[in-house]
Design a protein around this nucleic acid. Structure first.
Lengths: 338, 338
DNA sequence: GTGAAAGCGCTAACAC
DNA sequence: GTGTTAGCGCTTTCAC
């Protein structure tokens, strides 16, 4: 049978209050009494029941993290650093994978906010702020990660998207490209919108071909980049910007299969968060944009804990910057720099 | 203030029992009463408190998954399929990342079994069965995943390691290799032991060079493969077997940097779970071993739920088999086959 | 320096 | 067909 706090109290010859205060260090207990309590705990093999405790206190010591795709290395790495931060502060992490489905996201938000977690980290796939906002119980601690909304009601930790993409296009133009194509992620995402906007502005500023056909959207899942790439090749692109790591892998892979040589037949710039080893092989033939994933996760963990402790703290926004690694910038060393 | 079940009962003019039975479908309630209850729920915006509920019932509807490295695509993909299975059955997933640290694993097992989860999925990094066993409360539902112990006390879902490695060595011998090296994972892991054993047996059977120096162990984390590879090259290997996906990426990447041509200067066979796109570029120059990650995760999810419902069910063991993809076996199509 | 006891919100006998 | 009520194991106020 389960051993409870009163079993311990009884064996130690003290009250349950004393046992509770002893294990929680929450009021003075004499050394002698402590001794007795710990002895009883050891003897009975007592472990305080976490659900009773969180029921009583209202604190679950658990944070939920809603991600769009856990098998995507970008998010997997973020989860890892979030988990690091949380476990160092005695918190647990519940993860939920939406697979970029708004419906799944709605369901999990409802589930998790119903007393399962103290706070929520969300890389939302929802584009409609009102729809999102309606799901969050008033005052519930939430931090948006990587993706945000125009309405600044919730705290957020993001990465700047404009600058690296703008620079990419300029550099491609500088190399002589005239028809620069872009493969974006899901059109509804804030990250995609910002990147496409930066692309469009740079294309205009650099005097490159402006053509709707040069803008393609993938879903950042497997095999989505191939279709986009085929379309872009039909449009006679001479350079391509890829907005997401997995799609970049596929692009490179596919160009290879088609015997289109990177840096010779076609120029490429890409976000390379997905799998660093892969890009290293090509780092002298393309520009890379490296997002600060670990810092993202760490900052997210920090912010959500802060919010859990002070739910009424003012909205906090942090924008990190990506590293831009021009083609051939470095070889082996860059790996540890990461 | 929080709205509770008695607020609902009061507004609906019924007892809390009726409200409870209505929302849980746990005894007959007349249509009329149901109507009133749901109306009251809607009006008050009532959501049953999950911690009160799990405190009362003892069921958390949550499974914990202890993984050694969440940013490793092999485990990330497994987590994804586990999560799929669980959420389809109304369960949540708590993940904990041990980073291959036995100490971290011990801590999380203790934490999670203390009333946080109904059952535990563990890809353990602990090699000592007694040490592991001591951490699990008697009768607590546990399913071992990917890694197991000689002692068959716990249910397990694993992938066969012997056959693919044995075959790899034979094929390399068949191509004329005489000094076949191997890069294994952490020596203490069951998977590593099985693979090294298979390697040794095949080396003997095929009459290849037997040399302790040809066996190297990495830790499956970043940059571990390079060291092993350097050592193997010093040993004048003419073929290499790599036992883990991330290390395989690094091996290929590093060979490339050193201008050692795959399939010409050196032959390679490897587990390729890590990032499929990467290998596709090399699939015509090396053999690949593809582990059934999704099935692993799915089976794990299924088994742990079964055990949660019937903790005394007999020990269950499942061994899945990897696909062996000989060099140049297929091109683009293989991707969707995956 | 320690104890007694009141609940937290819910479920599930038991009663009618 | 529905209501009453006793706890689940813990924390915490109030009391001494």
């Amino acid at each position: 049978m389960k051993v409870t706090i009163s079993d311990v109290a009884h064996l130690a010859g003290v009250s349950t209050a004393t046992v509770s205060h002893t294990i929680n260090n929450t009021r003075y207990v004499s050394g002698e009494t402590k001794e007795k309590v710990y002895r009883a705990i050891a003897e009975l093999g007592y472990t305080p029941d976490a659900s009773a405790r969180s029921f009583r206190t209202g604190k679950k010591k658990t944070i939920g993290f809603i991600v769009p795709d856990i098998s995507n290395k970008f998010f997997a790495t973020m989860i890892e650093s979030v988990e690091n931060h949380l476990s160092a502060h005695g918190y647990h992490l519940i993860i939920a994978n939406t697979k970029e489905s708004m419906e799944r996201e709605e369901n999990t938000i409802r589930l998790l906010t119903a007393g399962l977690v103290d706070g929520l980290l969300i890389a939302s796939t929802i584009d409609d702020f009102a729809r999102f906002d309606a799901l969050i119980p008033p005052g519930f601690p939430v931090v948006l990660v990587d993706r945000t909304f125009e309405e600044k009601k919730y705290s957020s930790i993001c990465v700047s998207n404009f600058q690296p993409i703008y620079r990419s296009v300029c550099r491609l133009a500088g190399k002589g490209a005239t028809r620069v194509g872009i493969i974006g992620g899901l059109p509804r995402l804030s990250t995609t919108k910002e990147r496409i906007f930066a692309y469009q502005q740079a294309v205009t500023d650099c005097g490159l071909a402006q053509d709707e056909g040069l803008i393609r959207y993938g879903d950042s899942m497997e095999n989505s980049a191939r279709v986009c790439l085929d379309e872009l090749l039909t449009e006679n692109c001479d350079a391509i910007v890829v907005c997401q790591g997995l799609m970049a892998s596929e692009t490179i892979s596919y160009l290879n299969l088609k015997n289109i040589r990177l840096g010779e037949d076609i120029d490429l710039v890409s976000f390379v968060d997905y799998d660093y080893d892969f890009y290293q092989l090509y780092s002298n033939r393309m520009d890379s944009i490296i997002q600060p994933v670990e810092e993202l996760g760490d900052a997210a963990g920090e912010q959500i804990l802060r919010r859990v402790e002070a739910p009424d703290a003012p909205v906090f926004e942090k924008v990190l910057t990506s590293a831009y690694k021009p083609c051939g910038f470095s070889g082996v060393q860059s790996h540890s720099e990461r």
